[in-house]
Design a binder for these strands. Structure first.
Length: 646
RNA sequence: GCCGACGUAGCUCAGCUGGUAGAGCACUUCACUCGUAAUGAAGGGGUCCGGGGUUCGAGUCCCCGCGUCGGCUCCA
């Protein structure tokens, strides 16, 4: 058998040779360092015979500690097995399910006997036992056995989840055998691959315990999931933990209140209360949003938040969204807070007869909607119940869809470019439960795909994730701790126009049904600002900075001059403060730095004489003297152009 | 909604096995008038999330509720 090595050379091995043989043939050092081999992109155990390629020479790479993601995934998977080993020993009667490696670590899901609750205070004991198994250097031994035999074995051990998994493998993959891995006293159903032995795990840490539904289905039993991570060195682990710590420092839930942007109250769960500094950012974004909408042919509207429930019966929200809505009785009528703006915008559309000449009609609204999101899902500004959307609805003909979708994506690009965002794009296609003809779906999906390919954007296809009324394009961003949140969405809707019997008069003088496009780009102001806070780590570019300049007098006798400096800047339209406190200049600077104010103007005897100010930039240090009016002009210009921060 | 953890001064947190609350920062006052990341001193400030229970006695133990955090599910 011939294999091509990463350096381009060819390695010839006798038939039946294993991965370990391959590593040994290359060199004794590599043989010792080898964890696994990667043949044509597939990672395989060292002990397994190498499969010959059919035709072309397969590539072969020996996986060692230096192989990056492949190597880490391997030992993290190994560590998950060791975790299960320890838990099985310490908690008799526990049922195991699955334990894969994931980004940055691994987890294992357990079903503990009734009455046993795991918490992170149990980690020490478990870790201790895990270390014993690692020190013992127990080899991972693979065996392929008939599925029926494996099933019998796990059934005898009352490992119900494993039995279910085997049944599924047999049913879905028509497999007649499955693989088992044994390390020390523990045998798991597992497709592998694994490292040679447990002592190749150099350092690991159990991190958290959480609930997770069996097979991710809320109808199933909730299992106990233990998260952990593993590395090849303590240094790498420490660096990883340090990164997590740094990410936490960017967390908008920490920075927001710290910088006086917003607060959260127990009395208004899911409803952030905006402080003056936060409103500055909110209003700047609103101004941007308004400008961008206006140049793109949107007409701004404003609609109530409270409606007779009849509206939602027509729209379908009563049937499909009721449990997420708030209702109240007023004078014997049931009223509901709108969870979306579309029914309201439809009222506006219906306000007059529409001609094909009027289309497309684009309504935009900074629309306030309320959704009763489940308590366990609320998350600072990123998941709220009180949602202010940068919403818009476009009513158009079917022929106009491609152009309008493209305009929406252009618009999104323009918005995101202001912040240097590069959202991930996702196309959601027809779900199983849907309405409308296949032709309609074909056309709608084609329109969206065309728009995306035309723009050369990379996108992921989420099969079957579309709404029941149409496909959609979603734009996602990641928060400081790696969680993905949807910002923008562009959705085609054929259903609402139907339910509300919307029509326009065509060139043929017949009534036709328009199509609606639901579109939000920032998503919600709450979520967008949350992402912004983390994106900038609280260090906002000048145009968004709640306080742009602070004037710092050296001593009390300079307050008068400082006051005139402030005046000049304020008159020029700069958001400026004067620190009049009787404090040392070092103290005033420190406080301004902690507040992340972009510019500081120090004024003392020298500046008073020359009529200037000493400029200091946030994180940039002393920038020397500036003429105050020049500086004011510069700041105004920087804010006007909405320049990025450096 | 589900699983687990947590909830003490405005903020960050301490408070051992139950004996009636403490630090730093912030705040107020006084002194200092200062040149690029914390001047010093004194003082004020607490329904220990809420409600029940156990106990002679609960911040501490138990139950229920609310909120928050980490996940899971959901996310038109």
């Amino acid at each position: 058998m011939d294999f091509q090595l990463p350096d381009g050379t060819t390695l010839s091995l006798p038939g039946g040779a294993t991965g370990a043989d391959a590593a040994a043939a290359i060199g004794p050092g590599l043989a010792r360092a080898a964890l696994a081999v990667k043949v044509d992109g597939e990672v395989r155990d060292l002990a397994r015979p190498l499969a010959g390629g059919d035709g072309a020479t397969p590539t072969l790479e020996v996986i060692t500690e230096r192989s990056g993601a492949d190597a880490l995934a391997l030992i993290r998977h190994d560590t998950a097995h060791v975790l299960a080993t320890a838990v099985m020993e310490l908690y008799p009667g526990v049922k195991i399910s699955i334990g894969p490696p994931i980004e940055d670590g691994f987890y294992y899901d357990f079903d503990f006997p009734d009455g046993t609750h795991l918490s992170d205070s149990d980690f020490e004991r478990i870790e201790q036992r895990m270390r014993e198994h690692i020190a013992a250097g127990e080899p991972f031994v693979r065996e392929d056995i008939p599925a029926a035999q494996a099933r019998q074995r796990f059934a005898a051990e009352h490992q119900d989840y494993k039995v279910q998994l085997i049944d599924d493998i047999v049913r879905d993959q028509y497999a007649d055998s499955v693989s088992l891995y044994t390390n020390g006293p523990f045998t798991d159903l597992c497709r592998g691959p694994h490292g040679p032995a447990t002592d190749r795990i150099k350092t690991f840490k159990l991190q958290s315990v959480a609930g997770a539904y069996w097979r991710g289905d809320a109808n199933n039993k909730m299992l106990t999931r233990v998260y952990g991570t593993a590395f090849f060195s303590g240094k790498e682990l420490d660096e990883h933990l340090e990164r997590l710590e740094e990410a936490r420092a960017r967390d908008h839930r920490r920075l927001g209140p710290q910088l006086g942007l917003f607060m959260l109250s127990e009395l208004a769960p899911g409803g952030p209360l905006w402080l003056p500094n936060g409103m500055v950012i909110w209003n700047e974004l609103t101004a941007l949003w308004r400008e961008e909408n206006a140049v793109r042919g949107y007409r701004e509207v404003k609609t109530p938040i409270l409606y007779d429930v009849e509206l939602f019966k027509t729209s379908g929200h009563w049937e499909g969204f009721r449990e997420h809505m708030y209702f109240t009785e007023v004078e014997g009528r049931t009223m509901g807070l709108k969870p979306m703006n579309c029914p309201a915008h439809i009222q506006l559309f219906k306000n007059e007869r529409r001609s094909y000449r009027d289309l497309p009609i684009r309504f935009s609204e900074q629309g306030l909607v309320h959704r009763h999101e489940p308590g366990g899902t609320l998350h600072g500004l990123l998941r709220v119940r009180h949602i202010t959307q940068d919403d818009a609805h476009i009513f158009c003909t079917e022929e106009q869809i491609p152009a309008e979708v493209n305009r929406c994506l252009d618009f999104g690009q323009a918005i995101y470019d202001h912040f240097g965002f590069e959202p991930r794009v996702e196309l959601s296609t027809r779900p199983d439960k849907r309405i409308g003809s296949e032709e309609m779906w074909d056309r709608a999906e084609t329109a969206l795909i065309d728009a995306l390919t035309q723009r050369h954007v990379e996108y992921r296809v989420a099969e079957g994730e579309g709404t029941f009324y149409g496909p959609k394009i979603d734009l996602h961003m990641t928060d400081s701790i790696g969680r993905s949140w949807q910002l923008g969405t562009v959705q085609l809707d054929y259903v609402m126009p139907e339910r509300f019997a919307l029509t326009y008069t065509g060139a043929d003088n017949e009534e036709h049904r328009p199509v609606m496009i639901h579109r939000a780009l920032m998503g919600s102001f709450e979520r967008f600002i949350g992402i912004l806070i983390e994106h900038y780590a609280g260090e906002f570019p000048l145009w968004l900075a709640p306080v742009q300049v602070t004037v710092l007098p050296i001593a009390d006798r300079h307050v008068g001059y400082g006051s005139s400096v402030r005046e000049l800047l304020a008159n020029a339209g700069v958001r400026v403060e004067l620190d009049e406190r009787t404090e040392s200049i070092a103290r005033k600077i420190r406080d301004a730095e902690l507040r992340k104010i972009p510019y500081m103007l120090v004024v003392g005897d020298r500046e008073l004489e020359t009529g200037q100010a000493s400029l200091r930039e946030h994180r940039g240090g002393d920038r020397g003297s500036v003429a105050v009016d020049d500086f004011a002009a510069r700041v105004v210009e920087e804010a006007r152009t909405r320049a990025h921060s450096e």
